[in-house]
């Protein structure tokens, strides 16, 4: 009987002792700080030059667990209507039915499904939803740094670049004058939640 009590005591001690330790080992989750983050893209125009643009509204969270990469996760949403190429007429065109159709498809989203440690960062596979089409993509996410923000809270930054074919997502109008390949760079700073 006393041994049973001893076992229960040990179990309780383990639970109480280990639970906080497990919590501290879990990856911290960061919420996107849109002011210090950017989603920038580049696309060929008339097969001669690159036109650049960005999205001004980005939300989401991420957690990077160095000890156990598979526990990491990334989830981001971009407001399609916040596209900004520095020209009002072009923005109107890009937001319309020829490209993003921002009224019908107001959000571009990414949600990771698996994370693995790679050579220079993390190989993150996830579902990208663009123009109403969801497809798996794999990107390399590179941690940029961790530190303290101006208010003392923890902050962390990540970067990724990738190229996608817009026609794979049903954005197949004006392919030719406007390139099919879109190079995207995502630079994110997040504040610890």
């Amino acid at each position: 009987m006393s041994r049973r009590f001893a076992s229960l005591g040990l179990a309780l001690a383990l639970v109480c002792g280990l639970a906080p330790a497990r919590e501290s080992a879990a990856a911290d989750t960061y919420a996107v700080d849109a002011v210090h983050s950017a989603v920038v893209f580049r696309i060929k125009h008339m097969n001669t030059s690159h036109s650049w643009g960005r999205f001004n509204e980005l939300t989401g969270t991420f957690a990077l667990d160095e000890a156990s990469p598979s526990q990491s996760h990334f989830e981001f949403q971009v407001k399609t209507g916040s596209v900004d190429t520095g020209n009002a007429k072009r923005d109107q065109h890009i937001k319309g039915p020829d490209f993003f159709n921002a009224t019908q498809f107001p959000t571009i989203s990414f949600k990771s499904t698996s994370v693995a440690k790679g050579a220079d960062g993390y190989d993150v596979t996830g579902e990208l939803t663009l123009h109403g089409v969801t497809k798996p993509i794999t990107v390399k996410i590179v941690p940029v740094g961790v530190g303290k923000g101006p208010t003392g809270g923890s902050i962390a930054g990540i970067d990724t670049s990738f190229t996608l074919k817009r026609s794979d997502f049903g954005m197949n109008k004006m392919v030719g004058p406007v390139g099919d390949d879109v190079w995207v760079n995502v630079s994110i700073e997040g504040g610890k939640k």
């Binding site: 039915p97 159709n101 019908q104 049903g170 197949n172 109008k173």
Partner: peptide
């Protein structure tokens, strides 16, 4: 010829 429609037609233009 102009905008080869995708199927299923998710985009309203398609």
């Amino acid at each position: 010829a102009i905008a080869s429609p995708t199927f299923p037609p998710l985009d309203v233009t398609d």
